[in-house]
């Protein structure tokens, strides 16, 4: 089994590490990189707690992709949403709207929500539903999650 040195930019930080074909992107993020904000859930692509962003700010499932496939790529995790110690507005909206309960799915849910807003700065409800259907949040039933996303979206509306 070949192990390879890969280069990975995570949250703007460059890493070089040895990865094995048996490791997923999730394994590397949580293991050697120690970024445990990203959670391990079903590992089969159904729960969404492992969601991170690719270089284009799209939501991808880190549990379903081999680490070696990401050589040379850039990834953003929940830890990378803050800018100079300030929460991203979607993170703040999750607090304000009580879109967080147990918090286990929250990093994945927030990364998904951020991805919706990246693609649709003022998302319609069906765009929110589509973008969020890849995650499960049993606690909130997604209701206040949608509220929080809409709140950020409509703030953008007003700025225009």
């Amino acid at each position: 089994m070949n192990r390879e040195m890969i280069r990975l930019t995570v949250n703007g930080d460059p890493y070089e590490l040895l990865a094995s074909p048996r490791q997923t992107l999730l394994d590397v993020i949580r293991g050697p990189l120690g970024l445990t904000g990203t959670k391990e859930g079903c590992t089969t692509g159904s729960c969404g707690v492992c969601t991170v962003h690719n270089a284009s700010g799209e939501a991808v499932l880190s549990c379903l992709t081999p680490a070696l496939e990401w050589d040379g790529e850039a990834v953003t995790t929940i830890e990378g949403l803050e800018t100079s110690g300030r929460l991203d507005e979607i993170q703040q909206a999750f607090i304000d709207h009580h879109a967080v309960q147990c918090g286990f799915c929250t990093p994945g849910v927030i990364m998904s929500a951020r991805a919706v807003l990246n693609e649709h700065p003022s998302p319609q409800m069906d765009q929110i539903n589509d973008g969020m259907s890849g995650v499960i949040c049993r606690c909130t039933g997604h209701i206040k999650v949608r509220e929080a996303i809409r709140a950020v979206g409509s703030k953008l509306d007003r700025r225009v």
Binding site: G48, N54, A59, T65, D130, G134
Partner: peptide, 12 residues
């Protein structure tokens, strides 16, 4: 295409 899985999956 839009009916396939979730946006997360379609991004991959």
């Amino acid at each position: 295409i839009r009916s396939v899985a979730s946006s997360h999956v379609r991004n991959m």
